[in-house]
Computed example of a mutant assay.
Amino acid sequence: MAKSILIPKQLQRFRLMLEQSAMEYMRCMPNTKTTNLMNSKLGGMPYLPKGATHPRDATGEYMLLLAQINFSEDSFPSPFPTKGVLQFFISSWSYEQTLKTGNILPQNYFKIRYFPITVTHEMIEDFTYLQGVSMHQFPFKKELSLSFSREIEPVSATDYRLNEYIPPNLVEQFTQTEQQRFSDIYFHYFSSADHKMGGYPYFIDEDIRATTVSLRKYDTLLLQIVSDDEMGIMWGDSGVLKFFINHDQLEKRDFSDVLLYMEDY
């Protein structure tokens, strides 16, 4: 593990349980540094080797690059790749589509693409064909570079698996003895409301996997982007975008089945 978990005094009685739930993740830190086509970034222009096509959505419109991760720039925890470039594209119509489909975006309005091997001598550099694509509801208006920090965290306050690690009867005992709601204390320290890859997700409402068993196969957080005033990142009304994938599929570098769940207030 990268680091030990910092557990506040109020939650020390749950230390063993929280340590059992611990997972490593990559914290993603956006900044305003200039990027090139190969760099990790939010927004901007993608790495596209010549011969590759730019993804289009269900309407035939070009999608926009939401995020690009170059795994050679840092050491990512397993089961993430150790090399190559992973890209997340979304449609400019994605916000309207999530309003129609209960926050789950249909896969023909986003695209995950992975290049296990990259070339720098033959890349597409002319993206004038994107000039007509609307940026009106895109979560950020300018390109942001990404840097990374490898961290460790216990199960998050809104992940459905919290009840598996800390039983409801212990939660009730805590509330009675501390005269404070366990959920309030736990959310304060472990909301997981960060830009990240891996680890546990943050939900505004509730973890949809709690009531929809068929979605539990999406057990790995591939990427989470939260609204961030400081960096000019805003999805709808202070929303969050989460990409989930099955652990085994990620190990196989198979990105054909990914769940994109979007929430806002």
Rank of each mutant, 00 (worst) to 15 (best):
N108R: 08
I90V: 13
L130T: 08
F88H: 04
F127S: 07
P46I: 13
T98V: 15
S92Y: 08
R113G: 04
Y62W: 15
K100I: 00
F76Y: 09
T118H: 09
S94C: 07
Y129G: 07
F76S: 03
S72N: 11
L64W: 00
P79W: 03
S78P: 02
T59Q: 09
I117E: 14
I104Q: 11
A52P: 02
E125R: 14
F127D: 08
E122L: 13
P55K: 05
P77I: 07
D57F: 07
Y114M: 04
M135Q: 13
K50I: 13
K50Q: 15
R56T: 14
W93N: 12
H121I: 08
W93L: 13
H54M: 14
K111P: 00
F88V: 06
F138K: 08
E122Y: 07
N70L: 05
I112V: 15
G43Y: 02
K141E: 10
A52L: 07
F138R: 08
E125T: 15
Y95M: 06
L99N: 13
F89N: 04
Y62Q: 12
Y109L: 05
T53K: 13
Y95C: 04
I69P: 01
F80Q: 10
T53V: 09
F76M: 05
L130H: 07
S91C: 10
V119K: 12
S92L: 00
F88W: 01
P77W: 00
S75R: 12
K83A: 15
M63N: 09
G132T: 15
Q68K: 04
L86E: 04
F138Y: 08
H136T: 11
D57S: 09
A67K: 02
F127Y: 12
H121P: 01
V119P: 01
G132W: 01
D74C: 11
P106L: 04
L105S: 00
F140I: 02
F71G: 06
D74S: 14
T101E: 09
M63V: 10
L65T: 05
Y109A: 06
K141F: 04
Y109G: 03
T118A: 10
E122S: 15
Y62V: 10
S94M: 11
N70I: 06
Y47E: 03
P46Q: 06
L86M: 12
I104L: 04
S72L: 12
H136R: 14
N103D: 14
E73H: 08
Q68T: 10
Y95D: 12
T98M: 13
F138N: 08
H136P: 00
S78Y: 07
E73Q: 14
F89S: 06
P116G: 12
V133T: 12
Q68D: 14
Q87M: 13
N70G: 12
N70D: 14
T82A: 09
A67H: 02
M45S: 14
L65R: 02
L48P: 08
I90W: 05
D74T: 12
A67S: 15
G44Y: 02
G43K: 05
P55H: 05
L105I: 11
D126L: 06
Y47I: 02
D74F: 13
A58M: 09
P46C: 11
F88M: 03
Y129V: 02
E73T: 10
